[in-house]
Design a protein around this nucleic acid. Structure first.
Lengths: 230, 230
DNA sequence: ACACTGCTGACAAAAATTGTCAGTACTATT
DNA sequence: AATAGTACTGACAATTTTTGTCAGCAGTGT
């Protein structure tokens, strides 16, 4: 990659990251050595781009630097299309519908030539193992999860034992052949995973749970040794 | 002045001008020849900076036309996020990077409260079977495919036999544990699938293939009994 | 018809970029 | 007080990029 491109990409990258970004990270992502990144940063700051670097921390972009909205690149549109295909194949039907709507919205708001490219079928992402449809509305779970509502569920476990519990949903996990809701179970006082298709009944309670979902996710990630979420 | 600086300055200059700016004017201002400005513009637009050039007029920066403020529903944002996670886990590294950039672009163009919801981690879509990294650039394949360029590849088949062929790439297929390029093979005069990680060398030829990709895909889909693409 | 402008290709001289390596200084954590 | 992580600098040679030049085509507005 040429330097000029890289500089623009660094601006984009800094704009989207809220946390400090290390030179090493950028070096990896942009496929150059950290030394080159340091040189780039000098160039950018010299040209007036408000980037702050602190030893031991990383780089942060100052507020107020406003680049005009960039259009999507071909690769971004392709990533979007592939992602939406995957969602349509693999996610629950509400989300699949949302994916379809999204494709529509975006394709009408980009130039025609890009749009044609975008909508053209040149991707294929089939899922051979079909995931069972849910009895309950996964949209309800997602809604509860986003706003930290407690939910009451009737659940059939592997052995077929049916129980009723109040849980705090914190995460949706999408695996190859099943979907899981990860939640804190009030009954067991522990994290549990619930396969969505085994949830028989579901009620979103008006009551919210207190600890921030983010911290619960972190705790769960540590317990389950999933570094990318911890 | 170095090129990198000049590009950043061009962005600044375009942002503050309302009227079209001619290449000649910028060339004067930045003390280079117009030819150099034309080259710069190609670089900038390729990097996604929304600049429009019209013969007889000059250059204007797109007023957010390419990416207008869009309203998304919570479900759409969640579909988007899930899709991009999947792409990051499952697609080649260029597309993964594009997915990341896309998240950044969209998150800066939607209201803050939605943005926070959007970026919050409440999805997990791991891929346990890791797909092998490619030797060649999959971005090149995608580019050739989108624009119907022929490509020349050196390919090692299952038995380990290495051959060189000219093929017409028509489709990328993303499976659970591998990625495939589907193409018309000039040598065999038939459709063939090539696992991307077994392509040893790749050259995008300047020559385009004639039949529309869409019709080739259809033919391939019928041969392979894939009704959703036929 | 005309002037103006965007845009492209090719080439060789000139200039910038890069990785490498070795080292300094600052920050937060232990 | 020690340690790990990070920003940052200098110098050099191989490599890559950039630039001007020139010649031309194509679209826009008068």
């Amino acid at each position: 990659m040429k330097r000029a491109d890289r500089l623009i990409q660094i601006i984009e990258l800094m704009r989207r990251e809220r946390r400090p970004v290390t030179a090493a990270y950028m070096a990896e992502e942009l496929e150059v050595t950290p030394r080159t990144i340091y040189r780039d940063m000098v160039t950018l700051t010299a040209s007036g781009v408000p980037i702050d670097g602190e030893a031991g921390i990383g780089y942060v972009m100052g507020d107020g630097y406003h680049m005009p909205p960039m259009m999507f690149t071909e690769d971004e549109l392709e990533a979007l299309m592939l992602g939406m295909r995957m969602v349509q194949e693999r996610a629950d039907k509400d989300l699949a519908k949302a994916a379809k709507n999204l494709i529509g919205k975006i394709s009408t708001s980009i130039p025609d030539d890009l749009s044609a490219l975008f909508l053209n079928t040149d991707l294929y992402a089939p899922q051979f193992v079909k995931i069972k449809d849910e009895t309950v509305s996964v949209a309800d779970i997602r809604h509860a999860l986003r706003h930290q509502f407690k939910i009451k569920i009737t659940y059939a476990d592997v052995k077929g034992d049916v129980t009723m519990r109040i849980v705090w949903p914190i995460l949706m996990a999408h695996f190859y052949d099943n979907r899981n809701m990860v939640a804190w179970c009030e009954k067991r006082e522990a994290f549990r995973s619930f396969r969505t298709e085994r949830i028989q009944e579901l009620e979103v309670l008006p009551e919210k749970y207190r600890p921030y979902r983010k911290s619960l996710i972190k705790k769960w990630a540590i317990e389950n040794q999933i570094p990318e979420l911890a």
